[in-house]
Write a protein that binds this DNA or RNA. Sequence first.
RNA 1: UGCUCUGUGGUGUAAUUGGCAACACGUCUGACUCUGGAUCAGAAAAGUUCAGGUUCGAGCCCUGACAGAGCAACCA
Length: 567
Amino acid sequence: MSDEINRGKEEPKPSVSFIEQFIIDDLKEGKNNGRIHTRFPPEPNGYLHIGHAKAICLDFGMAQKYGGKCNLRFDDTNPVKEEVEYIDSIKEDIRWLGFDWEEREFYASDYFGKLFDFAIDLIKKGLAYVDDQPAEVISAQKGTPSQPGTESPFRNRPVAENLDLFYRMNEGEFDEGSRVLRAKIDMKSPNMHMRDPIIYRILKSPHHRTGDKWNVYPMYDFAHGQCDYFEGITHSLCTLEFEVHRPLYDWLIDQLKTSDYRPRQIEFNRLNLTYTMMSKRKLLELVQEGRVSGWDDPRMPTLCGLRRRGYTPESVRKFIDLIGYTKFEAINDVSLLEHAVRDDLNLKAPRVFGVLDPLKVIITNYPEDKIEDVEVINNPEDESMDSRKIPFGREIFIERDDFMEEPPSKFFRLAPGKEVRLKGAYIIKCESFRKNKDTGIIEEVHCTYDPGTKSGEGSSGKKVKGTLHWVAVRYALDAEVRLYDRLFDHEDPAGQKDEDYRKFLNPDSLKILKGCKVEPSLQSAKPLDKFQFQRLGYFCVDYDSTPGSLVFNRTVSLKDTWAKMNK
RNA sequence: UGCUCUGUGGUGUAAUUGGCAACACGUCUGACUCUGGAUCAGAAAAGUUCAGGUUCGAGCCCUGACAGAGCAACCA
């Protein structure tokens, strides 16, 4: 290529997120000896959703890109809410997304000993005290964001007494809720988190990893920053709401650190999507109240839900990449997510014929018992995917929507006297149809075919506007198809003050179609196999599917300009 | 009435030393098509929350407003 051409189209500089820019700058300055170490710290109290995917892609992605490492660390500081079930699903989902933490699977509970020692150390330095007051009193003394707090009467308890009490708290001598350990910082701080935060509480539920070894457990705020520190994390990436916690983490690390090293916390915006919500608590409610079939209901924004819906990890990653990381709390349009899957599946998904709402067509001039195997391309976007043969015969099913008794002028499909191409087969002409006099339902369409128009062989000079998909009656397989729509009919169901999000549940978010007809090659399709049902959309085999009764989930429809014209 | 953060087409982002506001999704045309898909060509759409200031020149710097979000769990 000549210099002139090169000059003409300069590579647009790839723009990086503000976080990546910080990392680049830190690297340039030689911080941490050029080391990059991140972590993804989920709490094992629910399933991962696409919002977590945003964090995962950043945590693992930055490490990958800059030759660093990313730990998986479960934030399991609350034995009351956390379960082993969730740990396995979280690991599965991270792997599915395409990331690997190698041997670095850690738990906040791995550090309970160190954390306890640190608490003892703070007590000895006069920086922590045992408070005997009940939760409500402590809470009242905290003040409000606009009013300073007041000091606890136990604030100046002697060190020896604090030490004795704290040890005895851990011995199990006191009831849950009777005493807590607090850091002694500043009750008048404008930052609520600095007003003598509770750092240890008594909890007597057994922990999934440490059993009944401990009777006191660190609060998240007392564990998170230090765990990062213990693991040598260089960049602690988290969401915006932890911005106000940062001074507390810094204060704690100041008491702990023995060198200049300190993890750098950088906060970014959460992922919000239109017509859904990310609150783990509310998602759990949907599951528990039976409003969805489970965490992996294909309407859920969970990773297992998206997987079951037919999303590919590539499409999720692409979407995350598209929306970026900023400090602005945004709400992203689902249509971008849908674009990402369509874009990915367009290249990957084999095309097949499936008829959702079958209407029988009889080709009256086609021999009774003749069956032809016609050849169809598997994917016009990818020649290497080759072609396959499907059976064609005198009786076929077409989509009910593809026939109209009295069509408008722009209707390019089948109608009395009109001709259409049957994809991969012949051009047919509608000669007549049979209608049920009582119901008005069209029961059968009678057509003739032109033998000179076989696909790939000719068209007898005919030009037809429409091409239909079809399935031969004799070889059609029955299938159940589940059509999904947005779970909520409000753009921001959880953001409506004084309105319960349940009120916005979309009653039509799931339509189950029985008696759909699909081509015989789908007989052996396995759960999670993905296809494009020609002209309809992308579909994925559901876990409920068996060779004897196929079940497909619609991932997303194809763009449909005809449907749009008719709106 | 406090503290922290944030305001760029409808939506999400970009603009790296202050220099013609760019890209994607969506929307709308048209072409092509044995998928009304894909693809291709094109269009509409913001003058950067507002008001001042500095500057030859401000989305970017300064000042002041306004708006939104977060913070008052023995949750994370």
